[in-house]
Design a protein around this nucleic acid. Sequence first.
RNA 1: GGGGAGAUACCGAAGCGGUCAAACGGGGCAGACUGUAAAUCUGUUGGCAAUGCCUUCGGAGGUUCGAAUCCUCCUCUCCCCA
Length: 375
Amino acid sequence: MEFKLSATEGGTRARAGVLYTSHGIIETPVFMPVGTAGTVKGVHTRDLKEDVRARIILGNTYHLYLRPGIEILESAGGLHKFNGWDGPILTDSGGYQVFSLGDIRKLNEEGVQFQSHIDGSYHLFTPEKVIDIQRTIGADIMMAFDECTPGDAEQSYAKKSLDLTQRWLERCFNQFSKTEPKYGHNQSLFPIIQGSSYANLRKLATEHVKKYDADGYAIGGLSVGEPENVMYEMTEVVTADLPENKPRYLMGVGTPVNILESIERGIDMFDCVMPTRNGRNGMLFTSKGIINIRNKKWENNHNPIDSNGRSFVDHYSLAYLRHLIISNEMLGAQIASQHNLAFYLWLVDTARKKITEGNFKSWKEDMVKQLKIRL
RNA sequence: GGGGAGAUACCGAAGCGGUCAAACGGGGCAGACUGUAAAUCUGUUGGCAAUGCCUUCGGAGGUUCGAAUCCUCCUCUCCCCA
């Protein structure tokens, strides 16, 4: 995998680049729709590609391992064949589930024992196993197995957690070098920088991951309960020390404002469930601000969802979408998800364009104001 | 014509002498959601000058210190038999 910077903007750390993968090129900054269980919920791959214009999507190791199971994925010929998405795929390692599954998992040096949220059965994830599973899934970008440390962790715990993540990283890279891709395309492994809300730990973590000379670097453990300004501070601390010639991925972030602020701080890649999950729950992101489509005020508004939107679903009316969401009609969730994703991709595409033109910063300032408005 | 059951807030439905402005569902209204245990979850839902007051449980009377709850009459609905 190769990454080339194509433009930077003076006075900021914003960058535009191109990431070359076996399944196609990815222009950055990029937003990657989350497809946990092998599907970006409610959106067809054709629409993802042609309408949303997604360049890469996510899958999740933990969820795919539990269902459909790696045997099925292997016999399908990998996730690309299984779900029909022929573009690049990034898989999260299950590290986030170490965080989000809270009380149904146990963590020790060897790895994490999970209790399946589906049937309660016990499963052990180790760094080695997680690499093996991601080999079988066939992800273009695999993520290291980490502990996603909560944003409000005590420094002593954050340090202990970071140390564990670092020992696991060593084991991930060992297993990575001992194994081969299964389907004839290249796979990369990205380390994840932890350190909770402590700048000194984040710096240590950044120095540590650089030793692996990976194809890209991820920042994890942000947007997990810490204040927004802390998230930006931590991002700055890390991007200051990362190599310029490798992509930086800020995991799980975020709101449209978070994304613009983080692009300014030198991030190239993002993913977040927000456009799909919040979309299903009635929240629309637009270039004019945020809409809660369930609110009564949209009941009789027959204007398009987003007159500036570039998705074909944007011509549906606000009143119609409200009706669908209120009635729990599945088309409502589909339209809202597709609209939001198309908006997110428009946002990063436009950011890229502005960086290339050298006027990102001023555009960003205006957009941030607009994006915070509740319509 | 005879016998029986019932009428509770926007809807359905508990409650059957005080702790009832009234459980629980649904619907309505609003909020949350950041590497997806989420088409989920939370709050609220008689009125008001609101740590209190006012009006409410089909209608009108009555019993009682006190009634959605007991009694009388009326109105309406449903079921069974002719």
